[in-house]
Simulated scan of single mutants.
Amino acid sequence: MADTLKDLEGAQQDTRVPLGEILAAVRFNGDGLIPAIAQQHDSGEVLMMAWMNREALEETLTTGRVCYWSRSRGKLWRKGESSGQQQHLRTASLDCDGDTLLLQVEQTGPACHTGRRSCFYIALEGNAARIVSEPLIDPDILYHRPSGGA
């Protein structure tokens, strides 16, 4: 498996390898998951990090709609299925070690369950943390919950 990635270290630009061979080389962790970083394709803004199993990765590559593995729910999670805030895949890249994905996406509305554009809204500065963005949509409205609901 790892030989495929090792062989690619010296590969020339535009070298092509069958997708099945690359998927077989992906280094999923002990739970069968790989971290996937979602980045807005045109601005470069990092939106979120979530997990994918092989099924979620294959579905994403096949359909173009980003699908993750929800560890809390124990099932596939198609981004936006409850909020309507979908991610559409533009490009997917595997890192050199085969253990992290970078997804260039077109994000519809907020990516974060807090209603913010990005999940990375807590800046760690010196001896304090600072909130750096406001929600675009109230999470209760986003998820059709009664006000103040969980």
Rank of each mutant, 00 (worst) to 15 (best):
G64Y: 03
A24S: 11
C119N: 09
T62Q: 15
I122T: 13
N127M: 12
G44H: 15
P18E: 08
L124H: 13
G98K: 05
D97A: 08
A50Q: 08
H41F: 05
L61C: 09
W77K: 08
L94Y: 14
L33N: 12
R54A: 05
Q39H: 07
E9R: 15
M48E: 01
E106F: 10
G115E: 02
R73Y: 00
A150F: 13
G84W: 03
F120D: 12
A128W: 08
T15L: 06
A36L: 02
P18T: 01
G84C: 10
P110L: 01
M49N: 10
Y121C: 02
L5R: 05
L89D: 13
E21H: 10
G44F: 03
V46R: 07
P110N: 05
E9N: 12
G149Q: 03
E81Y: 01
D14I: 00
D95T: 04
C119Y: 11
L47F: 04
K6R: 05
M52S: 06
L33E: 14
R90D: 15
V26A: 05
L23G: 04
E134A: 09
Y121M: 04
S70N: 10
L23H: 03
W77R: 07
L102P: 06
C119S: 09
Q12K: 14
Y143V: 00
R116H: 08
G149A: 10
Q107T: 08
P35Q: 07
Q12R: 13
Y121F: 13
A150C: 07
E21K: 15
I131Y: 00
T100G: 09
T4N: 12
N53K: 08
M52Y: 07
R71C: 08
Q40C: 10
V46S: 07
P146I: 00
A2Q: 14
M48T: 09
R73D: 14
L19V: 06
V46K: 03
S83V: 01
T114I: 00
M49K: 06
D14G: 00
T91S: 13
A128I: 02
L76Q: 14
V132H: 11
R145G: 10
G64S: 09
W51A: 04
G98M: 05
S70V: 01
A129N: 11
R65K: 11
R90I: 05
Q13Y: 08
D138Y: 04
S147M: 09
G98F: 02
Q87R: 01
M49G: 05
G32L: 07
A2K: 06
E134M: 07
G32M: 05
K79L: 01
E9D: 06
P18N: 05
I131R: 12
A25W: 15
L5I: 09
T114N: 11
H88F: 09
R130L: 09
L8P: 04
V66A: 13
